[in-house]
Design a protein around this nucleic acid. Structure first.
Lengths: 258, 258
DNA sequence: AAGGAGTTTCCGTATTATGGAAAAGAGGGT
DNA sequence: ACCCTCTTTTCCATAATACGGAAACTCCTT
């Protein structure tokens, strides 16, 4: 189905440029040409030329003092322009605000990509002790409420192709689901009840409950959740919040019908 | 000073790819290869190859139904990873939240790029009638409080190089500053008082007051503002808010000293 | 002042991106 | 069901251009 793009139907210099951007994105600090050249196995002049190109367009910035490079604002702008996420965020934001306000905890919006979840938006709790997740963050799907609820609604075939049985599941905490069998059983339950709960599976001390948002043709296009410190946002609290969350998700889903 | 990157020190296929991404970003709808090919004056196969490359990396998504293209989530991710804005947003967010809460209006963070302002973050008012600006938005600097306050702190030389006297200022509303002379005079005042006010210069019915945030070496690296409907957020209200804003900005600026 | 570690520039060569055209699909209308 | 049109995809020979190596340069350190 998903036919992989033929290798020689791709432009190598563009791929190198993307490699470079992605390399800079995971680097926290500014980086010099030599280091990039070594890490990406590219010639010095090649790296220099790519960076010059990206720099002239604002995709990277060169620190005049150190001559080292980092990502530029242009990328931020482009990222904000991605329509699919924009639409989702615009529609969902008011509901997230309301959820966050009424529960006094942090509310999140995320989508599934592969075996990972990408956070699109968060409204943080105003409490001093609160959970914070940056938009754009990726986390393994199987250890978050958002991820589990999204996984539970994909087709079996899709699930199988994502999780080959030979690849072990990463365990972020001692409470993370660690076997594929366990995950499957759990997802079945999640799908039945229509929501997922994460009790310190992603991070010790953090609980979360998530529900799906459905698109026009009935498949889960995104999910919303409420996260909080396990000490305050207990299983009882999550149960209390459950119905509000489900109602909100239905209201949001209705907006995607037109 | 700013030596322009030599034209043949840039890789053309990368530039084409960037052209394409930027083209898709201003297009609201999905776009086909033929249209892109015409608009960008590139061969069909070239466009196809570039899109294949970008698609294989998640930078664009092809709608299976229509075979048309749009930007992909990967760009959103990369955009979120831009360190310079991340740092600014992380540090500023709590203050913006507080400002928004205490004034019940929308609070914004933005930076200057060229003659334009780019919004990095907003905390929206909870009022039903409120002003909303999406992060990533670009607006002409000379008609917003944020822009004016940032312009007022750049060097004269820099200002002159931005505003050639032959290019007229765009007027977004009838109240926008429309002549360079007027702008210069105004900016002088803004710099003296340390804040800028925009009374429906950007949009009729919208008022705004902004103050700068200073970096380690004393230049304005960003600005924060409070916006509201002119009917409620009157000049008197802005005056009242002024001191809180200035205090907040000083607190934020202090965080950039380390 | 000299050495070192980085960046930037230059150049000939080999790779590779290119556009044109043909092939393959995808509707739409008769 | 067929044809016709519009669009995307694939293929190919050629011209363009991205490439790496090395020299030139810059700045910092000793």
């Amino acid at each position: 189905m998903e036919k992989r793009v033929d290798k020689n139907e791709r432009i190598k210099s563009i791929e190198k440029a993307l490699d470079l951007l992605e390399f800079l994105s995971i680097k926290e600090q500014e980086t010099g040409i030599t280091e990039i050249s070594k890490k990406l196995n590219l010639g010095l002049s090649t790296v220099h030329r790519i960076l010059s190109t990206l720099k002239s367009r604002g995709y990277v910035i060169q620190n005049q003092q150190t001559t080292k490079y980092r990502l530029g604002i242009k990328l931020f702008e482009l990222g904000c322009a991605v329509q699919s996420t924009r639409r989702l965020v615009e529609i969902t934001k008011p509901y997230l605000k309301q959820l966050s306000q009424s529960t006094n905890e942090t509310a999140n919006l995320a989508i599934l990509e592969g075996k990972e979840v990408i956070y699109l938006d968060t409204i943080e709790s105003t409490e001093i002790l609160r959970t914070e997740i940056m938009a754009g963050t990726r986390t393994p799907a199987h250890c978050t409420a958002l991820g589990k609820v999204l996984l539970s609604f994909i087709s079996n075939r899709e699930f199988e192709s994502l999780y080959k049985s030979d690849e072990p599941l990463s365990s972020l905490t001692s409470k993370s689901i660690s076997s594929l069998e366990e995950l499957k059983k759990h997802l079945k339950k999640v799908k039945e009840q229509g929501y997922a709960i994460d009790r310190e599976e992603y991070k010790i001390g953090v609980n979360c409950i998530g529900v799906p948002i459905f698109g026009r043709n009935g498949e889960a296009i995104a999910a919303i959740s409420i996260t909080g410190p396990a000490s305050r946002f207990t299983i009882d609290e999550m149960e209390k919040v459950k119905d509000i969350l489900i109602t909100t998700s239905e209201e949001i889903s209705n907006q995607f019908l037109d």
